[in-house]
Design a protein around this nucleic acid. Structure first.
Lengths: 145, 145
DNA sequence: CTATCTGCAAACCGTTTGCAGCGTT
DNA sequence: AACGCTGCAAACGGTTTGCAGATAG
């Protein structure tokens, strides 16, 4: 059993524990998301998944993403040119590093941010509740090309 | 002459230097943006501006924002719930601090980020070209309420 | 057997485009 | 006089909703 398959089984189980059902459409959509190392638009997920399951509808992709996001399994990714892409969420709080060439997404820890946030909070008087930190660049593979 | 008026005159001049024209619609739209301390959607700008200039069209707001953004005078703001808001751009590279209660937006410097970005670049092999850092919280005024 | 899920079609909503006339320079 | 600008209406594209039938539990 591959790592993706194991994770897919976990996700399906979490869906079921929340009163949702296991269906062929959801299995396929979850597999596509777990196999891909970059953020995908709903339409992209639909096109890839439909090759494996004829008759799948785009609406089902939207509705499945909605449920996966509510369970925290998937997260919406914001980029300069698009805010409608979805990516498998990391375990715990991590930050995104995205390759502007191939789209590959990786997560990293940003514990070092705490002192800066405290400084800003003290200076501004804000009570900070959330932060966004994302890096964009060219990954090692794409630099070689 | 207030600070807003002075800045409005500068913006109009920059538009003119780029081959664009000064019009009543643009004057009004620029004023609205400069008077407001939070990011606004095109529709909000339109509604506020239209009270001052009857007959203004929403399309003109979109087209003016496009030009202002191209000149770097205005920037699009991404938030968890909306990615279509615009805010007067800061001078130089700064980061956003947004009040989740009233929407007020402030900028701050984040020079402290450089070492973290270098660490991530070294570990990941990425050549980092851009970064997004934004804080959300409750401003001092809203905490009192 | 019941509640959820599905795909289709249509509605929706923010944004963009085509156009003819107007305003700025 | 020339060219940019304007508002309107229509087109557009991604997303959501209503619905009747299919399917998981």
């Amino acid at each position: 059993m591959t790592a993706e398959n194991k994770k897919a089984a976990e996700w399906i189980k979490l869906l079921q524990n929340s009163g949702y059902r296991q269906t062929e459409a959801r299995n396929t959509i979850v597999e596509v998301i777990l196999e891909t190392n970059r953020a995908l638009e709903p339409l992209e997920i639909f096109e890839i998944a439909r090759k494996r399951q004829a008759g799948l509808g785009l609406v089902t992709v939207y509705r499945t993403l909605e449920r996966l996001e509510a369970l925290g399994l998937v997260q919406r990714v914001h980029q300069p040119g698009a805010c409608n892409m979805y990516l498998q969420a990391p375990q715990g709080h991590q930050h995104l590093l995205i390759c502007t060439s191939c789209g590959k997404a990786e997560f990293f820890n940003g514990d070092d941010l705490t002192p800066l946030m405290e400084t800003v909070a003290a200076r501004s008087g804000y009570q900070i509740t959330e932060h966004w930190f994302q890096l964009f660049g060219c990954c090692a593979d794409c630099q070689r090309k």
